[in-house]
C-alpha cells in the first residue's frame, strides 16, 4: 500500500461566519501529482494553509506525515512557496536560499537548486531588483530547498509568461519523476492538465470531484454554444447542462459541443450566428454546482 503523506478527514474551516472549507476529506499519497482545481475563493489556499500548519481546522482532522502540521518536526519534509511580493527585497538571491536552507537538516545544494530553476546567474542579485518572473521562480525554488518529499505549490505560475511557465513546469515534472509528491493549485485548467495525474475539483469549500484528469475534464470541459433562433429548442438535446435565453439569442452550456451541434442540425432547428466558445472555469463551476447534486459526490 502506498504511504499517505497528508490527509484531511472531514476538515472544516470557518472564518467568522464564512465557511471556507466544508467537511473536506482528501488523501495525498506518496508519488502523486495532485492538481487542486477551483475558482477563486473555492477554498484551495485554505486547504493548503491547513496542511502547511498555518491554520487549524475548525473541526475535523488534518494530518501531515502522520502527525499534526502544527508540529515543526512534521514540516521537515514539506516545501511551500511564499508569495513573491513578500520576498525579502534587501537580500541577495543566494542569501535568501541560504537562510531558508538553515531550517532544514538535509537541504539541497544551493547551486543545483538555482540551476534547476534557471536562477544560477542571479545568485548575487538583490531580490528587489529581480523581475516579476524571476521572483516567482525564486519563490517556487524555495519550496524545494529542504529536499522535500511533499511540495505545496499555490498558484505557481500566475502572472508568468509562456516560457517561464514551461521552465517551471519542467522543474515540477522532474521533481515528480524523481519520486516527489506535489499538491498544486491553479485556476488554469491547462496547467492542471499539463502537470497533474489526479485532479481534485473544489468549489464552495466542498470537494466536487476527485479523479483522473480525463474524468474531470469531461466534467469541467464545458463549452458555451450560442445561437439565434426564434423557435423553441427541441427537448432531449445531448449533454446540455444549462440554458439561457435572451430574446432570440440562446446560450447553451454543454459537455459535448460537437454532438449538440449535430443534434441541432438533424432536428432542423432554424439557427444563425452559431458560436462555440470554451467556458471559463468559473462558468463551468456554476454549471456543475447548479446541475443539481449530481457532482456533489461524497468526498473521497
Amino acid at each position: 500500500m502506498t504511504e499517505t503523506l497528508a490527509r484531511a478527514v472531514e476538515a472544516t474551516r470557518r472564518y467568522g461566519d464564512v465557511v471556507a472549507l466544508d467537511r473536506v476529506s482528501i488523501d495525498i499519497r506518496a508519488g502523486e501529482l495532485v492538481g487542486l482545481l477551483g475558482p477563486n475563493g473555492a477554498g484551495k489556499s485554505t486547504l493548503i494553509n491547513l496542511f502547511a500548519g498555518l491554520r487549524r481546522p475548525t473541526s475535523g482532522l488534518v494530518e501531515l506525515f502522520g502527525g499534526s502540521p502544527r508540529d515543526p518536526a512534521r514540516r521537515v519534509r514539506i516545501g511551500t512557496t511564499p508569495q513573491e511580493t513578500g520576498l525579502p527585497q534587501a537580500l541577495r538571491v543566494g542569501e535568501c536560499v541560504d537562510f531558508v536552507s538553515a531550517h532544514y537538516p538535509s537541504a539541497v545544494s544551493k547551486q543545483a537548486l538555482l540551476d534547476r530553476f534557471g536562477l544560477a546567474d542571479l545568485t548575487r542579485r538583490q531580490i528587489g531588483g529581480l523581475s516579476g518572473g524571476q521572483k516567482r521562480r525564486l519563490a517556487v525554488a524555495l519550496a524545494f530547498t529542504g529536499d522535500p518529499r511533499l511540495v505545496f505549490l499555490d498558484e505557481p505560475t500566475t502572472g508568468l509568461d509562456v516560457e517561464a511557465r514551461r521552465t517551471l513546469w519542467d522543474g515540477v515534472r522532474r521533481f515528480h519523476a524523481e519520486g516527489g509528491t506535489v499538491l498544486l493549485t491553479s485556476h488554469y485548467l491547462e496547467e492542471i492538465e499539463a502537470l497533474a495525474q489526479r485532479v481534485v475539483v473544489i468549489g464552495g469549500g466542498r470537494v466536487l470531484a476527485d479523479g483522473s484528469v480525463d474524468d474531470v475534464r469531461g466534467m469541467v470541459g464545458v463549452r458555451r454554444v450560442s445561437l439565434t433562433t426564434p423557435a423553441p429548442l427541441p427537448g432531449g438535446l445531448p449533454g446540455v447542462i444549462g440554458e439561457q435565453r435572451e430574446g432570440d439569442r440562446v446560450q447553451l452550456l454543454t459537455s459535448d459541443a460537437d454532438e449538440l451541434v449535430r443534434a441541432l442540425v438533424l432536428a432542423s432547428v432554424p439557427f444563425s450566428g452559431l458560436e462555440v466558445r470554451q467556458t471559463s472555469l468559473e462558468e463551468a463551476f456554476l454549471a456543475i454546482t447548479s446541475a443539481a447534486g449530481v457532482h456533489d459526490a461524497p468526498a473521497a
Partner: peptide
C-alpha cells in the same frame, strides 16, 4: 504585514 511572515511559519522551526 508581509506575506513572507506566514511563509516562515511553514518552515520546520518554532
Amino acid at each position: 504585514a508581509q506575506p513572507w511572515d506566514p511563509y516562515l511559519r511553514t518552515l520546520p522551526a518554532g
